[in-house]
Design a protein around this nucleic acid. Structure first.
Lengths: 244, 244
DNA sequence: TTATTTTTTAACGCTTTTTTTACGCCCCGC
DNA sequence: GCGGGGCGTAAAAAAAGCGTTAAAAAATAA
């Protein structure tokens, strides 16, 4: 889907209606509620505007001069998932069913109350927003080679089934190393990330921490399976493929 | 948790309405459409059913005998995100606005056409499904391991049958932990959720509250059965499977 | 209002974590 | 072989975090 869906200050609402007085009416109401408005008086320009600005919500009148409302809706749904509220004078049930099944999110019959319409707008925006936020639920990075298992999101580490307790700093180091898996992380980088920019020279802390980490992970500095020392530079976490 | 909202063959719809003929009517219509039905004739059993079965959609009549419809809605929204379609004889605009802003997803005025209602049901299910795929799986509102029983909807907690009284803050903490069951909730997250963004560093409050909570739930900090502390990070509610 | 519950504040052990301090090792150039 | 820098380990001392208790303050119910 195209949907740039950037975070705008104000939600954009596209009104597609041929009656000037309705547009005027909606313009007043929606603007005072803090929405940014886009207007079109026929289906074609409506689709064009929608494509160009990808509004957060569309209010669509079914009775348009140039094309049938359902055509507009169908055209929209081919690429956009923005919520659509249908506006119509016709109160025929079949119309509603058709529109809703075509992908509309709500159907309001004229004449309608402003407050109700605004509430329905809020409802649709709220619903649609919710789905969007949850998209990236913190990349659940996981390492698992059969013996060692690391789940960063759950903050769980097990060695051959046995859970291992890591202190906050230990876990922080492991996380940084694992996220840069295979690549070297310099000592100063690690120090900056975990102790803050004031301790970038205390390479000492690191050695102790790495030591404890290795011990807990069942690693050995002489035969480095997971954490590899790059003398004078830093450390790297070995991916399974890298292991000799 | 009892019922982790697994993918069922048929969508479950919970109808909360006191009028038998309406329920009968809805039962016929919804069943022939292939939905599985749950019915409640008052708010309390409605909330209970919802907590136990976590339906995919709720149809809620505003005029209930035992409690106000908005109370039911509000109670539901404390822990559930299932779409709610309001049914009402009252056509007052303010009612609609209130219900929609309280978290309802649609509002249908009686008398209504079956086909329209069914179309609106489809619309809500379709919308909610879309959002769900990305989101964390919905956790059920009930925990029960034979000894400890927590019902978020009813706001009731019992330990081996005996009801336990929780203060509002205690319950709030428990709710947050339970809804994130198995996952860590950071201290700052808890503090923000319950005390507001101004007290994100007063980890002290938490320790006291968690302490009392453990005491009331019959938990022991040395042998953590329910609430596990992740030192330096936060707390997590243990699902039965996690318990060692 | 009074009485009761709930929340906040304060203080104290206890444990864990972090930091400090000290020491041994190995590789390399001298 | 001698000494220095970088690395790893092992022990302490210091600090921070957790859990508990008791009492004061605030909120709530009666």
């Amino acid at each position: 889907m195209t949907e740039p869906a950037k975070d705008r200050e104000k939600p954009y609402i596209l009104v597609i209606d041929d009656e000037p007085q309705i547009r005027h009416f909606l313009r007043i109401s929606l603007k005072t509620e803090g929405y940014e408005l886009l207007e079109a008086e026929n289906g074609e320009t409506g689709l064009g505007l929608c494509a160009r600005h990808s509004p957060d919500l569309v209010i669509l009148d079914l009775g348009l001069p140039d094309m049938d409302g359902s055509e507009v809706l169908a055209g929209l749904r081919e690429w956009s998932s923005a919520p659509v509220i249908i506006l119509s004078v016709r109160d025929r049930e079949l119309e509603k069913v058709k529109a809703l099944d075509l992908g509309a999110n709500d159907y309001v019959t004229k004449p309608f109350g402003v407050d109700e319409l605004l509430a329905r707008v809020r409802t649709q925006l709220r619903n649609h927003q919710k789905g969007k936020n949850a998209v990236a639920p913190e990349t659940s990075a996981i390492f698992d080679n059969g013996e060692l298992n690391i789940d960063l999101a759950m903050r769980k580490v097990t060695v051959s089934g046995e859970p291992v307790k890591l202190t906050p700093k230990e876990f922080a180091v492991l996380k940084v190393l694992l996220l840069a898996s295979g690549k070297i992380v310099t000592q100063s980088q690690l120090l900056k990330d975990i102790w803050g920019p004031t301790h970038t020279t205390d390479t000492h802390y690191l050695r102790i921490l790495i030591g404890r980490l290795r011990q807990k992970l069942g690693d050995d500095p002489t035969e480095q399976r997971y954490i590899q020392t790059e003398p004078g530079v830093g450390y790297r976490f070995l991916e399974s493929s890298d292991q000799v």
